[in-house]
Design a protein around this nucleic acid. Structure first.
Length: 574
DNA sequence: GCCGTTTTCGGCCCGACTGTTTTCAGTCG
């Protein structure tokens, strides 16, 4: 369930959208958007908070504060309701069409009486949009295409898909003689779980040949814009890619700008303005003299603003600017810190690879320990038995002699049944080096039942790690309904680790859940849940989530030494 | 609407591209 903050954020953004449609003043909606972001990123849950508490949120003044208070108390806000009376919700929906903003949406509504995307489609078919003042055939065509894009792709792709596309383009552009440096930036570099469009950056003196080579790539389906500094295309998959070419001397400033996030950029630009400076994609300048102060590396630019380097995964305006100013940016978990993987499967159950192949790849990754955690009997389709899992334990023990530098741990992935019970009795569970417990069915239980179920599993002394807590599958299955506050408190109190499942379809916990859970002292396990050898490399995505959740290696049990991990696993057992 | 060791009023992040315009508004990132 979303926090109250998320509901408030959505309310403020809707209000800002309606203001931008109805009025000309651009600053008022911007103030609401800014406040909305501040609320969304605010670490304290606003549920039940009074006005003095609300006013502690930056960018929230009396006017917005009172609206938030009203909304928290009544679930709605009178002035928002009043604006909703004036504008059908479909007009706001139209703003999600590429190329159609608040002003054009309002003209379409006022002049044509068109108040929904469906009605807009009809109006375009009748050629009525092109005839509007300051519209035209081109504009109508672009809106039509924007609608097509909105309805087909729906926008975002999963991070592994975007990364694959980005790497192809980076390779192609890197081979050009005009390219000095090539990199992807944007939300992909920040490791967001889904990617709306891919941002590419090339350093070079000649933009035109790079832009021409870009639009000539085989997977380009359509060119949206083609300029000297900026070009945008859409691939056959419907993924938009933006390319910017900048002078090499401005690489650092450009990387900061194109990595974002937008909120982060706004924060540091405001800081620059206040210091009498100007920051853009070409560098940091003295506002008066125009003198260039920093541009070549990201470190230079942040340094000149009085901050240390900020990792891309932190750049969301969730406190990283304040931390950097105070010199308190945490040293984030990296792939290299991971000493092992604690959730993996073999072909004894539903994995594709043999025990030997999985362990072989784990050794190749340089792990100091590695856990095999095949499914337990209560997931009946896996056909697990006591004899089979004990035979596997013997095989693991035998295989150990081949890997003197890596300790093999024999574990299992238990099934949390609807009542919160898991497979096997305590004496049998005591025989495992570690256990992961996860929900695999009955996703639609009530919030109360699901929370009780999860708490019971967390309290079980033989459960070491909760796997994929919410069971969401990105774009396919929603998360289960849970009282996360209660779950995180219990996990922190009992020392039950929560998994960050690294599979790009899951990424469960999400970054926001990690931020929330770590405030309760929760420990995490960044695991792959690998069902095949290549899945072991998904850890890069799990590490991305961990970084976005501000985790250091001290927070992550499989970044610890074997001794420390074993002490952690032993704690709480009878 | 918010905010202030340059400001309690007058600013508000900045630049590129498109389309419909004869100098710029709208949109996007």
């Amino acid at each position: 369930m979303p926090r109250a903050n998320d509901a408030v954020e959505a309310m403020l953004i809707e209000y800002a959208d309606l203001l931008s449609i109805l009025f000309d003043d651009p600053y008022k909606p911007r103030a609401y958007e800014k406040a909305a972001r501040a609320v969304g990123g605010y670490p304290v849950d606003l549920e039940g908070k009074d006005l003095p508490e609300i006013l502690k949120i930056p960018s929230v003044g009396r006017s917005i504060g009172e609206k938030i208070e009203e909304f928290l108390g009544s679930g709605t806000m009178a002035e928002l309701e009043a604006l909703r009376e004036k504008i059908p919700p479909g007009v706001r929906d139209m703003m999600s069409i590429q190329g159609l903003g608040p002003k054009k949406a309002m003209v379409i509504y006022q002049e044509l009486g068109v108040g929904s995307v469906d009605e807009l489609v009809a109006a375009i078919e009748e050629d009525r949009v092109a005839a509007l003042p300051r519209f035209g055939a081109k504009t109508q065509e672009n809106i039509a295409r924007g609608i097509g894009q909105l309805q087909s792709a729906g926008g975002r792709v999963k991070i592994d898909v975007a990364l694959g596309v980005a790497e192809v383009f980076v390779d192609a552009l890197s081979s050009l003689p005009q390219s000095r440096r090539v990199a992807y930036a944007g939300s992909l570099r920040r490791m967001k779980e889904t990617i709306g469009d891919v941002d590419l950056l090339v350093a070079g003196d000649e933009a035109t040949p790079v832009m021409d080579a870009f639009v000539a790539q085989p997977s380009v389906a359509r060119v949206l814009a083609h300029g000297d500094a900026k070009t945008s295309i859409v691939t056959e998959l419907g993924l938009q890619i933006d390319l910017r070419v900048v002078p090499e001397a401005a690489w650092g400033a450009a990387m900061i700008y194109f990595t974002g996030s937008k909120a982060h950029n706004i924060r540091i630009r405001e800081m620059a303005v206040r210091a009498g400076l100007k920051l853009n994609e070409y560098g940091l300048f003295d506002a008066k003299s125009g003198e260039l102060l920093a541009a070549e590396t990201e470190e230079d630019v942040y340094g000149r603003l009085g901050m240390g380097y900020i990792e891309p995964t932190l750049r969301e305006d969730r406190g990283e600017v304040e931390a950097a100013l105070a010199g308190e940016v945490p040293t984030l978990l990296t792939e290299k810190d991971l000493q092992g993987d604690l959730h993996t499967h073999t072909n004894l159950t539903d994995g594709l690879a043999s025990l030997e192949d999985m362990v072989g790849r784990a050794a190749g990754l340089g792990y100091r320990y590695f856990a095999i955690t095949d499914h337990a009997p209560n997931l009946y389709m896996q056909r697990m038995t006591d004899d089979k899992i004990l035979a596997q334990r013997a095989r693991v023990a035998k295989l150990q002699s081949k890997y003197p530098k890596m300790t093999l741990l024999h574990g299992t992935e238990l099934n949390i049944d609807p009542d919160g019970n898991v497979d096997w009795d305590e004496s049998f569970l005591a025989g495992f080096d570690l256990t992961v417990a996860s929900v695999h069915s009955h996703f639609n239980q009530s919030r109360d039942a699901m929370t009780a179920r999860m708490l019971r599993a967390i309290e079980n002394p033989y459960v070491d790690i909760i796997g994929h807590l919410t069971t969401r599958q990105i774009g396919k299955r929603p998360p289960v309904d849970l009282d996360l506050q209660a779950v995180f408190e219990a996990a922190g109190r009992t020392g039950t680790a929560l998994e960050i499942n690294s599979h790009p379809d899951r990424l469960d916990l999400s970054d926001e859940h990690v931020l929330w859970a770590r405030r309760h002292g929760v420990r995490f396990a960044v695991d792959t849940d690998a069902h095949a050898v290549p899945h072991l490399d998904h850890r890069r995505f799990g590490v991305g989530v961990a970084q976005r959740g501000w985790l250091t290696k001290d927070d992550v049990i499989n970044a610890w030494s074997l001794r420390r991990l074993q002490r952690f696993l032993a704690e709480g057992r009878p």
